[in-house]
Amino acid sequence: MSPLNRDDIHRIFEMLDENGDGFVSHDELKRILERIGVQISLAELEALVGKRSLDLLDFVCFYDTVIKVNIGDQSVAGEEGNDVESDLAKAFKVYDLNGDGVISCDELQSVLSRLGMWDEHGRRDCKPMIDLYDTNSDGVLDFEEFKNMMAINNS
């Protein structure tokens, strides 16, 4: 899992806060987790989060805790046969919808839309996001560029 900057975390918080009350409830958090394939009961989520709902500060703290745990796991995993690379390969496959070995703008937008992290009506293009890490300028991200993107966001 790659750390995000505070602006990204704030945007995610706003997207998760579906009813706009300034809090992310367990139900709202559970829905996004299910969208990305994580099955967790409300009881497990409540035990993990420790509160009925999270304000932005609580959400940032929760996110930071999850990142620290995952980064710690990754440093150990590197000694166990490169699990980090395996996790990155799995993440890459989530975005590479047609299995052609690259992530296109359409694929990135499709996945972000399914996760509820893309405003369909904003009429923005994913091209600037792709271009930022597209080192060979072919308009798509291959696995090495994806790994570099994740490494940059992880530092």
Rank of each mutant, 00 (worst) to 15 (best):
D27S: 13
D96A: 00
A47F: 08
M15I: 01
S155F: 12
S53Q: 04
I152P: 03
F59Y: 01
G139S: 05
C61R: 12
D7C: 04
G99E: 15
E44D: 14
S41R: 11
R35T: 13
F143V: 02
M150D: 03
D138N: 05
E28W: 01
L88I: 08
I32L: 07
G122A: 10
N154L: 13
M117P: 09
L48R: 10
G99Y: 06
G122Y: 03
D17Q: 03
K51T: 06
Y63F: 13
G20L: 04
V24S: 07
I36V: 15
R114D: 12
G139K: 00
D125E: 15
K147Q: 07
E28Q: 10
E145Q: 14
L33Y: 07
K93D: 06
S86L: 11
E44A: 11
G139W: 06
F62P: 00
V102H: 02
E144Y: 03
K68H: 02
K30W: 08
G50W: 11
P3N: 02
M150F: 14
L97E: 03
D142N: 13
D87W: 02
C126T: 07
G37T: 11
S25N: 01
K30T: 05
H121A: 03
F59R: 03
F62D: 01
R31T: 13
E80T: 05
N70S: 10
S110E: 06
Q39G: 08
T65Q: 12
G139A: 07
D142R: 08
V24Q: 03
G116S: 03
V76Y: 10
L48I: 07
E120L: 14
F92Q: 03
Y133H: 03
V49K: 02
L132M: 12
E18A: 08
S155N: 12
D58P: 01
R123K: 13
E85Q: 10
M129T: 08
F13Q: 01
V102I: 08
D64N: 15
E44N: 10
